[in-house]
Design a protein around this nucleic acid. Structure first.
Lengths: 234, 234
DNA sequence: ACTCTTCTTTGATGCGGCGCAAAATACTTG
DNA sequence: CAAGTATTTTGCGCCGCATCAAAGAAGAGT
């Protein structure tokens, strides 16, 4: 079994303000896991035994409705915590987390949460700041869904993904993991058909370039204008 | 100036598990405020100087979009905390809170949050449980907006309000504060026109009774079936 | 190279619910 | 009680986008 070193996590936002000793104590309790593509890190409704840190890869957090529809809550990037139900006094996971590529995660037993939070106040504060941001995001999503048209929502979704995982290429900013039309539809509350039509239209206007499970934003600025709803001059 | 007594708050959820001494210490630092109907408890974007507990009345939490549309995030009932930006490491309020009737609130300076949280761990845990619930709610809203039709969303909204503030009357369960078609529209991402049509249709079917700024749910069960989308047999 | 599967594109059709307009009703205030 | 204001109702036309259907395109497996 491989040793875990604090350098793995020292630079990550949740651990900001922790000294080396503290980092060692935290990582000493962690288990590293590999999650292969399309497998779950944790499942909705299940007992929240652990909380996680994503070290490498990308994870999609989804909620499944009683009648089987899937809604994507968010994408997790390396350095983000997930499954922190225990920090919020829950005993089950409210959503499922699926690896969209092969991933590496660290896992801590949920029971350890309160211990960490009181022993390392910075860690607690960092986590709650994250929770605050996610609450904000969720409310922003509600506002978007209430007030914006589909094209604006899709534009916003793409911009968010680009901000989170955009990689410079010679064509523009490539979203760094496989992302299908269906995936985008599940983020924006529409259908893959509509997403497909929008992307081809935008491709004709030179805003994006896209292919199978891959989207590159060529002109973020013009896409933002569209997202904000200021009228487009052809 | 009136003395505040711990009996005001002792039975409220955020203070569960606190002993009388602790309650006294907390309430000793609080200021009581009256907020008259239609006035703000706090405003979006403003410096988060205080956090609040609603003692009496009802408060609507809203987000305003750049172009002036208002989206209702939630209604607050007596015994609930609000404006707890500081617990999540924010320095400004992410939304505005408006009294829908004359209200009484307690206010504590934001700076006191961390002190309370560490001195009274139960209070901290209770608060974070609340935050967890709100995050859940927000995600549930996103799922609703993504997958449900307007009539289902309106039905869900009414049921939520009834659960929160339903008062038994001889007609059914009355929502205990003034609530216009416009208000319902802002909760569900639709227009007052559509809400009006739905309510009159439901009234004809005997599901609800409603008048000016007032809604009574007559048959919660049938309304729930409608909310869940199981088809109605006329 | 060929088949199978997954993902994407594109067309045709229909409808839920929004936008607009105007009237009716319910409170409020002098 | 009359005038003024806020809220609700209702009709009508239209359009954004879902739904249904089917055919391409791109990889994956053998």
């Amino acid at each position: 079994m491989s040793r875990l070193d604090r350098s793995l996590i020292a630079h990550m936002a949740p651990f900001e303000g922790l000294n080396p000793t503290e980092l060692d104590r935290m990582i000493g309790q962690a288990r590293a896991l590999r999650i292969t593509k399309d497998h779950a890190v944790f499942d909705q409704e299940q007992d929240a035994h652990s909380f996680f840190l994503l070290l490498d890869g990308y994870v999609r957090v989804i909620k499944t409705t009683p009648d089987g529809e899937e809604v994507t809550v968010r994408y997790i990037s390396p350095g983000e915590l997930m499954g922190i139900a225990s920090a919020l006094g829950r005993t089950t996971y409210p959503a499922s987390a699926i690896a969209v590529v092969d991933c590496v995660v660290l896992a801590w037993p949920s029971g350890m949460w309160s211990e960490f939070a009181s022993a390392f106040p910075n860690f607690g504060a960092n986590t709650y700041r994250t929770v605050g941001n996610r609450l904000q995001d969720a409310h922003a999503r509600v506002v978007e869904m209430s007030t914006e048209q589909v094209d604006q929502r899709v534009a916003h979704a793409l911009l968010k993904l680009v901000r989170q995982s955009g990689k410079r290429t010679d064509e523009g900013l490539l979203i760094d993991f496989p992302l299908s039309r269906q995936d985008i539809a599940e983020m924006t509350g529409t259908t893959l058909h509509t997403v497909s039509r929008l992307l081809t239209a935008w491709e004709e206007q030179g805003l994006v370039r896209s292919g199978r499970q891959k989207v590159t934003v060529v002109e973020p600025h013009r896409l933002l204008m569209l997202a904000e709803g200021r009228t487009e001059k052809t």
